[in-house]
């Protein structure tokens, strides 16, 4: 799993001030597959996710040790620029967070900040991205209306489309369905199942059933440590560690 990984962490530790939030994590994320990070709240799964595109840099007092390798280069090297990094490793957040702009402007935002100026090219990108995010048919007649008028589920798919428009290689998703109703959740899950044919996806979820439905690989976290990881079906049916078993059987979290 390590060798073929698109992105991987090695002996990775993270501190918030004195608090040791991640303890020597080593884990690889294979290309064109979906890895789910699960565990009770506060276990460090979201922190690990946000370490993969250095969104943790925005928090004061964060310190890291170890490596995060993206195709062989350590993203925490001093000569790494977080801007191109985040273009390659994109993120979808827990709460849908479209900009207060039109649907079109939301999707065009990414390509624009990366230098695309041609209107015709932007129109193509917007259409392609919305189609990839399975939202095109619902919004094609109102691309100029405000994105905030969309429903929660549509907003989240819009955020995914917005991300796809910058042509990322890795998609990080932080509990992308936790703010959505069951029907919207189903749509986003369908979309994610489709996207993992093309992208390396890492999803944080507290919903084991969801992880079982959508993920190929699973990693279980507890109190800042990675307890175990493996192929989803095997790990769910045959956990080797008692903490994993306790969590899966609902004894805590």
């Amino acid at each position: 799993m390590m060798q073929s990984a698109k992105i991987s962490v090695q002996d990775f530790s993270l501190y918030y001030g004195a608090f040791h939030a991640l303890k020597k994590i080593s884990l690889g994320f294979p290309p064109r597959s979906l890895t789910a990070l699960v565990g009770p709240s506060g276990c460090g799964k979201s922190t690990l996710l946000r370490s993969l595109n250095r969104m943790n840099d925005l928090i004061a007092g964060v310190r890291v040790e170890g490596r995060v390798s993206l195709e062989g280069s350590n993203i925490y090297d001093p000569d790494v620029d977080v801007v191109p990094l985040r273009k390659k490793v994109g993120m979808v957040f827990q709460r849908p967070n479209p900009f207060p702009m039109s649907i079109f402007e939301n999707i065009a935002y990414g390509p624009r900040v990366h230098g695309e100026k041609k209107r015709s090219r932007l129109q193509d990108i917007v259409e392609q991205s919305l189609k990839s995010a399975a939202l095109w048919d619902e919004v094609k007649d109102r691309l100029d209306s405000p994105a905030l008028k969309l429903s929660g589920g549509q907003q989240q798919r819009l955020c995914i489309a917005r991300l796809l428009a910058v042509e990322p290689e890795v998609l990080l998703m932080d509990e992308p369905c936790s703010a959505l109703d069951p029907i919207a959740t189903e749509k986003v899950e369908e979309l994610v199942m489709d996207l993992k044919k093309k992208y390396t996806i890492v999803v944080v979820t507290h919903n084991i059933a969801q992880a079982a439905r959508i993920s190929d690989y699973l990693a279980f976290f507890y109190l800042g440590e990675m307890i175990e990881s493996g192929v989803t079906r095997q790990l769910l049916t045959n956990p080797t560690k008692h903490q994993t078993e306790d969590y899966l059987t609902g004894r805590f979290g």
Binding site: M55, P84, F93, Y109, C159
Partner: peptide, 27 residues
């Protein structure tokens, strides 16, 4: 201006200034 906007923009690979001038200031 909600932090969500900044995070979304930075996560798309926008620079600090692009985020400020195109998302935060208009809002």
């Amino acid at each position: 201006v909600p932090d969500d906007y900044r995070q979304a923009s930075l996560a798309l690979g926008a620079t600090r200034w692009q985020t400020t001038s195109r998302v935060v200031l208009p809002a």
